[in-house]
């Protein structure tokens, strides 16, 4: 099955779980996508939505978030769009090494690396008008999960 859906959701944390469920259900209609790949999809979309919600909350922007999903025979592509003020991907600092006591001081900062590792393609376009995160999950994992 192929298809496309667009979700428009309020900037509320309780909607993240709902979006995971809807997108996961769409993905499960493609028999080529394994349970593990659908779990990867649910994780990356959760990360992207979390970032979008945090960004809009930080800037007190209540405009709804847009989630696009496109299912093909060999992959599912998802896109999360927010209307926050954007960020510089290259300026996100690295976390301290795991072995360092300093590591426990950082509760945030894992989302982007999770999206990079779990997806088969990650593109981020960010500017003062907002951010678009585009991710692809192939039915055959090109990463090591």
């Amino acid at each position: 099955m192929t298809g496309e859906i667009e979700l428009s959701i309020p900037v509320r944390v309780d909607y993240v779980q709902l979006v995971r469920a809807v997108v996961g259900s769409l993905a499960s209609t493609n028999p080529e996508l394994s349970t593990a790949r659908i779990a990867d999809l649910r994780l990356v979309i959760s990360e992207a939505l979390t970032n979008a919600i945090r960004a809009q909350e930080k800037n007190s922007i209540s405009e709804r978030l847009i989630v696009l999903c496109k299912l093909t025979d060999s992959a599912i592509e998802v896109e999360v769009r927010d209307k926050a003020t954007g960020f510089e991907v290259d300026l996100i600092p690295d976390l301290p090494p795991t072995e360092s006591p300093e590591r426990l001081q950082h509760e945030r900062g894992l989302g982007l690396s999770i999206m990079r590792e779990m997806s088969d393609g990650l593109e981020i376009e960010s500017g003062p008008e907002g951010t678009v995160v585009h991710m692809t999950i192939n039915s055959q994992n090109s990463n090591n999960s």
Partner: peptide
């Protein structure tokens, strides 16, 4: 299910 927010809470 756990994501980076959940991981952050147990790191804290």
């Amino acid at each position: 299910f756990i994501d980076s927010s959940g991981l952050g809470s147990i790191i804290g």
